Amino acid sequence: MTRPSEPEIQEPPQLKFLRRLVTTLTAVMIGGLVVVISLLVIRLSDKGVTLPENITLPDGTTPTAVTFGNGWIAVVSNDNRILIMDATSGELRQTIDID
C-alpha cells in the first residue's frame, strides 16, 4: 500500500534566513565558550610566581605574590610576611609581618 504523495511545502525565504542565522549564532556561541574555558584553564594552571634572578629569599620562604616598585621589589611570602628587596642588588631592605 502506498501513501498518497504529500505536497511539498516551500519554506519562506525569511524563515530560511532566520534558521541559518540561529544556527550560525549557536556555532559562534559554542566556539566562544570553548575559548573562554580554555583561557581560564591556561591562566589558572599557572605555575606560580617567578622572581628575578638576582633575588634570593631566606630559607624556607615561598613567594605567593610579587610587586615591582621604583627601585624595590615586594615579595609576599607564605609565612605572612612582606619582604621589601632592593631591585638592583637583591638585598633585603625591610620585613613586614602581617597579622
Rank of each mutant, 00 (worst) to 15 (best):
M1C: 09
T2A: 14
P4S: 11
P4K: 10
P4V: 12
P4G: 06
S5A: 13
S5T: 12
E6S: 09
P7Q: 10
Q10E: 14
E11K: 11
E11S: 08
E11A: 06
P12A: 13
P12I: 05
P13I: 02
Q14V: 06
K16P: 01
K16E: 06
F17T: 04
L18R: 07
R19I: 02
R19K: 15
R20E: 14
T23W: 10
T24E: 05
L25Y: 00
L25K: 07
L25H: 06
L25T: 05
L25P: 00
A27T: 06
A27L: 14
A27N: 02
V28S: 04
V28E: 02
I30P: 01
I30W: 07
G31Q: 00
G31K: 00
G31Y: 03
V34Y: 00
V36T: 12
I37W: 06
I37Y: 03
S38Q: 09
S38N: 03
L39G: 05
L39Y: 08
L40Y: 11
L40G: 11
V41K: 00
V41I: 15
V41G: 01
R43A: 15
R43E: 14
L44N: 13
L44D: 05
S45G: 14
D46F: 01
K47E: 15
K47P: 05
G48E: 08
G48S: 07
V49R: 08
T50L: 12
L51C: 04
P52V: 09
P52D: 03
E53D: 15
N54K: 12
I55L: 14
I55W: 03
L57C: 05
P58S: 10
P58D: 03
P58M: 03
P58W: 03
D59A: 11
G60W: 06
T61D: 10
P63N: 06
T64C: 01
V66Q: 03
T67S: 10
F68P: 00
G69H: 07
G69Q: 06
I73S: 01
S77H: 04
S77T: 15
D79C: 01
D79N: 12
N80K: 15
N80F: 08
R81H: 08
R81A: 11
R81D: 06
L83A: 06
L83M: 14
L83R: 09
I84H: 04
I84L: 15
D86R: 05
D86I: 07
D86L: 09
T88G: 04
T88D: 14
S89Y: 02
S89G: 05
R93C: 02
Q94S: 11
Q94Y: 09
T95E: 08
T95P: 01
I96T: 11
I96P: 01
I96W: 05
D97L: 09
D97E: 15
D97I: 07
I98A: 05
D99L: 11
